[in-house]
Design a protein around this nucleic acid. Structure first.
Ligand SMILES: [Zn+2]
Ligand SMILES: [Zn+2]
Ligand SMILES: [Zn+2]
Ligand SMILES: [Zn+2]
Lengths: 161, 161
DNA sequence: TTGATACTTGTAATAATATAACATATCAAC
DNA sequence: GTTGATATGTTATATTATTACAAGTATCAA
């Protein structure tokens, strides 16, 4: 797994591929990939950072919709439930998944300077967490793993020469 | 580090020791351990689970105070800043630290059935996370590590014989 | 002791995030 | 086309958190 949020990349295809993957997944699983849901996913995919539900509502309103909170939260529920987006608990906000269709349980890397959010492979992290939990007799079902710090770009900017 | 939230233990000393440790730490560091701050810590220490700021306000009001939100949030800021309590991001709530005065960066184990919250040693987890982040060129400054699942007691209850 | 200063609390108002409830519309299968 | 399930529109409300400013209290130096 790469950390696409931090690298230069073909962002147009980033959006296009994300939508296409989600559409394919929905077809395959009999889910309705409605215009609202597609639109919200596109809005998230435009950024490699997390947006609040009300940020999304603002965009929808700029586009002429009369969008009340449930519009955003319902679409986000759908996207998160099906793995097309992730909730970033630390920010009470949502980010498009960078690996739609691939089964994964990532760790999130949140840059405190530019707000970019990337996904990192978390299998070893989850293994270590599972082990620590097991020692307490605790069974892990889900885990929130979110790191805050500096992305490569902002690190250079902040600590020059 | 144990997972005291899930074990039988002398809970009276649990509260008493927590307050005493916080008081000692404040004396040593020239911090004001005011009645408000002490009271909020006690309220958290009564439970081995996370309470919302408004849960705390309810308790203070039952005790006769006219407590507005900043009362709770200020005390919680103080407690969290000095390591006497932790914020559980997944719950937007706060739990007393189980190891006041000891330097530690725990993982939290949150039981979805009884809502108990315990702290587990997270050094190996953080090491694994740091390594994954490093591969992306990311520098971790803080990390949220929260596992949701079933505590030993609730696990037995839920899956009998 | 006094006054300067920083820190803490009281209080009102408001912002930001999220859900409940119910009516209407659309979809999917029959 | 009818029907049941799913999705959307809309209003209202619940929950979590911060801003702003006034008033009180602790600390310490002069
Ligand atoms: Zn993802
Ligand atoms: Zn950055
Ligand atoms: Zn206890
Ligand atoms: Zn439990």
């Amino acid at each position: 797994m790469d950390a696409k949020g931090f690298d230069d990349h073909d962002h147009a295809s980033c959006i296009k591929d994300g939508v296409a993957s989600a559409a394919a997944y929905c077809t395959e699983h009999g889910l309705q990939f409605t215009p609202q849901r597609r639109r919200v996913l596109e809005i998230l995919l435009r950024e490699h950072r997390a947006l609040g539900a009300y940020d999304i509502l603002d965009v929808l309103r700029e586009e002429g919709q009369t969008a009340q909170p449930p519009i955003a939260y319902r679409a986000l529920d759908f996207l998160v439930s099906n793995g097309f987006a992730h909730k970033i608990e630390r920010l009470n906000a949502f980010a498009a998944c960078a690996h739609i269709g691939e089964r994964h349980a990532p760790a999130f890397l949140i840059c405190r300077a530019c707000r970019a959010v990337a996904e990192a492979a978390a299998a070893p992290v989850r293994a270590a967490l599972g082990k620590a939990a097991q020692e307490a007799g605790f069974t892990v079902e889900r885990a929130v793993i979110e790191a805050e710090g500096l992305c490569p770009t902002c690190r250079q900017t902040e600590a020059p020469a």
